[in-house]
Nucleic acid binder design. Sequence first.
DNA 1: GTCTATAGGAGGATAGAC
DNA 2: GTCTATCCTCCTATAGAC
Lengths: 206, 206
Amino acid sequence: MAITAPPKVSFKAQMLLAREDAIIQAVNRLLADKGFEAMTVDQVAADVGIAKASLYKHFPSKEDLAAAAMVSVMKRAQAFLDTLPAEAQAIDKLRAVVKWTMGLKLAGEMPSLPSQNSSLRTTLMGNQAYLGGLMDVSLRLGAWIEMAQASGDLNPKLPPIVVLYTLYARACDPVLEFLKMSDLYSNEDIIALVMSTCFDGLNARV
Amino acid sequence: MAITAPPKVSFKAQMLLAREDAIIQAVNRLLADKGFEAMTVDQVAADVGIAKASLYKHFPSKEDLAAAAMVSVMKRAQAFLDTLPAEAQAIDKLRAVVKWTMGLKLAGEMPSLPSQNSSLRTTLMGNQAYLGGLMDVSLRLGAWIEMAQASGDLNPKLPPIVVLYTLYARACDPVLEFLKMSDLYSNEDIIALVMSTCFDGLNARV
DNA sequence: GTCTATAGGAGGATAGAC
DNA sequence: GTCTATCCTCCTATAGAC
């Protein structure tokens, strides 16, 4: 391909991408709402407004549907990381990411996957787009974690991997759902409370 | 029943109870290993070593099987609470409970339920034994939480319900599994690390 | 690429003999 | 109460016309 055609994106191709985007959004909603196993392909098709067989022309399996949704949120996360000012303190960037993640979950836009091994894990572990995104995000967060530890903001005794996992876990923290169900607090209150328990801990600070 | 027969427990009845206990243990293991939706009744039957139809003579549905397992762990939790010395500090009792819970999870004995609404939630919400146990545990933990806040151990600004949910959430914390999978730490190390992030938080303490 | 219709199979639950 | 054999529903995935 020494000479390539101009990158013309035909109207048809745009429609295709738009449809795939609609599919991914529907999958994302359903995954956030019911989880992978309870989500059925029929529901996805009905939600998008196309026939189930048409879905399988776009994605070869239910697992690939979910994987596409995961790639999508990973891209959103990367885009969010890009918006954070480079000159900001590492700890502030980390806090912003966690807040953003919890906001996504409270808004019903954070897909929830089975934590146990399953067919989905296999598909996900073979998805380069997902793995690449996850790796990129982890490396950037990891660097900020070490910077925040060096500057005395984060506890330097905690292995960075533990901090990273603890931050990731806020994306599927049942405390968020329970507090939301209790109807005692607004979403902002819930985020503030969980931010406090996460970063400050449960113990009193002297 | 003014005059009751002596509480003789026949041999047959003991065998029955023993079998039901074996069923519950198998369910417990499978729930901890794969979760409710991925657990199949056939696996339970195979694990116990009886026919599936026999299972349904003991428990009317898959949901009731899981509910029985939940009642069982709730009873274990109540029994553990009973072992804590009454004169101990509230904060120490809370810490002991969380450690015990995480040990159970790392040992593969903590059943994991779908966090989303499902048929299981409905069954569980109609199970008086489960609800009663949950209420009892919550009240006892709630009292300790308020005591620990009053004595300056726990952050008094956190609503007790938030503390309670945060402690409960350690029973299904994915950080435990991830750290275990990473094979970097022993179970004791993992518990110590998560205890630290839970009670001390991620921030450095001055 | 979209549809209708259906194959194929997994899994929860039950019938009926013993 | 335990078994074998079976029912029946739901769901993933595909065939084949247009």
